[in-house]
Amino acid sequence: MFELINLLETVYRTISADLEAWFEQFPQGLAWNVFSDYCIGDPNKANDTFAFAIVLNHDTQSNIEEYIVAVAPSDIKGSRSSSEGLIKYLSCPVVFSVSKGITRDQATIDCQTWRLAFAPEGHKFARENGFSGSSIHDLVEWLGKKYPLHIKKDPIPGWRRRVKRLRSKGSPHLAVATYVDFLRDTAQFREDLGESCAAAEAEIDRQIDEMRARRRKD
């Protein structure tokens, strides 16, 4: 989720400017539809994906839906490529769309390094190991490459294997001991992950409120 925050902070102004310029071609008072789609945690995919589209209400919902069903791949999330008809629709003048793919390995690293970037141990490590960047994003990226993180890849597959082993334990006491060890070993990472999700949601809400405030002034 901190990868999503990074996306929002680094490209938000560009996307916002492009979106406002795109809106200028239309008269005020038109009706719009906002669509979003997410693919998160699918074990069959290497990346998580966030997609958003703003569509002028240029036809009935049923006609728009019928057209998309006709031109899109039958299993759009299971397909490795899109169709020409769908690409043309998403790039036509009545649609503004943006999407972002995030690897789970990178998200795993980022949710730990963002905490470290604001923590004394992260600052100490940076001072002692030659960090020369000038921004918090530089530090986050540098820590991701240099800091000896305990977890560097998506841990979910390994956790699922642990669950299978846990269920196979013949002794309930041994199973409980294994579970307690797991909670202890992953406590900091699970806390980092929870905080990153909350921070991403807060950043999205902040930017939505900021845009609404600007539009009320206009």
Rank of each mutant, 00 (worst) to 15 (best):
Y89S: 10
K100V: 11
L86A: 07
E195D: 11
Y12R: 14
T186A: 02
D138Y: 07
R215M: 11
E121V: 13
T10S: 15
A17R: 14
N33H: 14
Y12T: 09
T113M: 01
F2V: 08
W159M: 15
W114Y: 13
Q28P: 09
S82I: 01
I136D: 12
T103W: 07
A199H: 02
H58C: 10
Q61K: 08
M211Y: 12
A199I: 02
L116P: 03
G144D: 00
E65N: 09
S196C: 11
G170Q: 11
I102Q: 05
S135V: 04
L8E: 09
G170I: 05
A202M: 12
G122Q: 03
I151Y: 05
R216E: 15
G133S: 07
I87Q: 11
I5V: 15
I64W: 01
S83W: 05
P73M: 01
K100G: 12
N47D: 15
V11Q: 15
K145V: 01
V176Q: 14
I64L: 10
E191H: 10
F23N: 09
P93L: 03
L19Y: 14
Q25G: 09
D192G: 01
H58P: 03
E66A: 13
I156V: 15
E84F: 01
F52L: 12
Q25P: 00
A31P: 02
G158M: 06
A119V: 05
T14Q: 15
Y179D: 10
H123I: 14
T14Y: 10
V71P: 05
V98M: 08
L90F: 12
E66T: 07
E9H: 10
I151N: 04
K146D: 05
S168W: 07
E128F: 05
S97V: 06
G144A: 01
L183I: 09
R215G: 06
D110P: 01
S79Y: 02
A70I: 04
I40D: 01
I68R: 02
R216A: 14
W159T: 08
R206T: 11
S99E: 13
I204K: 04
G85A: 04
I136N: 12
D18N: 14
Q25M: 02
L183C: 10
P157R: 03
D192Y: 01
L166E: 12
Q188I: 09
P93T: 04
T103G: 13
A72C: 06
K169C: 15
R214M: 11
